[in-house]
Amino acid sequence: MSRPLRLNVGLAAAGVALILILRLIDNDYAWYTGYVILQYVLLAVAWNILAGYSGYVNFGTAAFFAAGAYTTILLTKALNLDLLVCVLAAGLVSGALGLGMGWLTLRLRGVYFSIATLSLAVVLQTLVVNWPYAGGSSGAYTMRPQGYAVFGNYSEFLFVLMLVLALGGIAVAAGIERSRLGLGLATIRDDERAAAAAGVPTLRLKLIATAISGGMMGMAGAPLPYYASYLNPEAAFSLTHTINAMAMTLIGGTQGWVGPVIGATLLSTLQQGATVTISSAGNLLIVGGVLILFVMLAPKGILGLIRAWRGRGDTA
């Protein structure tokens, strides 16, 4: 079996195993918790496609995520489309958003791109707040169907949907790492000028990466209105999504897709456990603090620590 095939089979097997385990537990809380963790896995893997692979920091995770969620709200309200169609549409909308954003600012030094993505969230949020059709500042409700096809209940369906999206996201990220695109992005991260001198079309590759990354974030946000039954701009555009995606990736390690998966699983499992005992503000404080500690003391993340530790073992 080739390596890519082995990875995809492995991912599928892990997915099936997860579904079976949660079926045994079978309570709504388990499906919900699993959904949130997988949502962050997808967000972190997506964020890393831009940050880890090409070295560009995106502060607009919340904007891409919310654009996906509001695509669902609008399409459901206007055309009563199925959630699965909405997910695809959300991917397209947020991908296009990334493309536009990148086209405006990716010619500039990386920090300007970061600053521009920071503004994107506020501009979009203001638009939504002032748009009564999308629910305005008070938000919009979504009617949740009772069940869906073969799934026991709608919570299980949402979980499986997010599982498929997250595993698909991982497969895409792993595919990029092995591809010509991945090689080109790595040269951009290492030295953009030398990359161009070697014939790498830097702007085009960055645009592709931004579109893929943005599209994946949009798809992560698309089921949110159904998950929560109610969506307001504050929740959709919350900086929590941005800081989490970033912290999870940097804590796990940016070298490849494994880092964000580890970071997201670890951090969001802890967060889900901690919400019972700690307020959401306290939760955020811990994430911020851990992020600061990691970027200072372990800039290569948990994976870097493991590698360093193994390396020491080898030489000893």
């Binding site: 040269t187 290492d190 030398a194 070697a198």
Partner: peptide, 30 residues
Amino acid sequence: ARLGLSRTFQLPRPFRSLTVLENVTVPLRF
């Protein structure tokens, strides 16, 4: 560069995260 105009930099600018061999494949893959 793709038209056949190559240049080197005064201070070498290798791609740090790639191996020596991968560095040299870059212009060929692009």
